[in-house]
């Protein structure tokens, strides 16, 4: 057996790799969430970025590397505190490209209110890298009284998205494959910490998750454990440019990555307040409910049909973040 590109997608191949190789080797706890919370208060996470091309409509690998990690911290209910930034540079990379990437990393860190405090830089021979690979590690602190995680999801909870879905996936696909949607769709890559803080201040949030690789579908599939989730397809906000791209290429916006959105689970009594808070940040919407069941995700379409979400083996788009 060898590693295939499917193992790097957001599908079940990745999960199988983690569960049968990475987990047993380093301890299963390391796999459970994107961010670990230590001693109940300190959150820690790490993320590696190999996106190609390095610059895409709406952002670049520098901005992505900062946002990805601070957003993972925010999903644990944590306030981001500090970041490390490690670079693997390929021989021949123009320094102005590096400067541009670093400038956008710094700008994203300012937006997120987080400092880059340490790092590492290595150079590999031409042909042994893809220009730049970036790894960021972040720490943050979870405020007193905040308890956010899958353990709090209950049947009856409402499922929200903080904005329209699939932009990052569509933008990267468009520019990488030369599909020409670049003008219509830019990546949504942005820190979500402010929206999360506003939501936590107003609502008892049960769980948060950022739909990056594998999109909203991967998040729902992972969190539908011990209960079912039913999604109303027509309620999921999708930008027209993303819809056009997915219709044309036979993709599903639910499977496309977002880099500036999150999925939130709240009590149904609080759903209107939660949507109101999030509407000041984006096109937030309630998209479904948690219901009792063995752990399936149902999608209701506008024709009244209902289907099970089938999570792909690999990613519909190889390597997007």
């Amino acid at each position: 057996m060898t590693v295939t590109l499917a193992h790097g997608g957001g599908g079940r191949a990745l999960r199988a790799l983690l569960e049968s190789h990475v987990g047993p080797a380093v301890g299963m706890d390391a796999l459970r969430h994107d961010a670990a919370v230590l001693d109940g208060r300190i959150a820690m996470t790490t993320d590696a970025f190999v996106v190609h091309p390095l610059t895409f409509p709406g952002g670049d690998i520098g901005r992505l590397a900062v946002c990805g990690t601070v957003n993972d911290l925010a999903m644990a209910g944590a306030v981001p505190y500090a970041l490390s930034l490690a670079l693997i540079l390929e021989e021949g990379l123009p320094l102005e490209v590096l400067d541009r990437i670093l400038a956008s990393a710094a700008e994203a860190a300012r937006e997120a209110g987080v400092r880059i405090v340490t790092g590492d830089t290595k150079v590999v021979e031409r042909g042994r890298g893809d220009g730049v690979y970036v790894t960021t590690t972040g720490i943050g602190h979870v405020p007193e009284g905040v308890d956010v995680g899958p353990h709090r999801i209950r049947p009856g909870d409402a499922v929200l998205v903080s904005g329209d879905v699939g932009r990052h996936g569509a933008a990267v696909l468009s520019v990488r494959e030369g599909l020409g949607f670049d003008d219509a769709v830019g990546s949504d890559v942005a820190p979500v910490a402010a929206a999360v803080a506003a939501l936590l201040a107003e609502v008892d949030v049960h769980c948060l998750r950022d739909p990056t690789r594998g999109g909203v579908a991967a998040v729902l599939d992972e969190l539908a454990t011990g209960h079912d989730i039913a999604i109303d397809e027509a309620a999921v906000p999708v930008h027209d440019g993303v819809r056009a791209a997915t219709e044309l290429f036979g993709l599903d916006p639910l499977h496309l990555a977002c880099e500036g959105r999150f999925v939130a689970f709240v009590m149904k009594e609080e759903v209107n307040r939660a949507v109101d808070v999030l509407r000041t940040f984006g096109e937030a919407a309630e998209i479904g409910r948690v219901q009792s069941g063995p752990g399936r995700v149902w999608i209701r379409d506008s024709f009244g049909g209902e289907r099970l979400l089938v999570r792909p083996w690999g990613d519909p788009l190889p390597r997007i973040c």
Partner: peptide
Amino acid sequence: SSEGACAAYHRYRSVG
């Protein structure tokens, strides 16, 4: 294939 009948049934008609 995304146009194959079996793939369409599997994607939209699987009942768990």
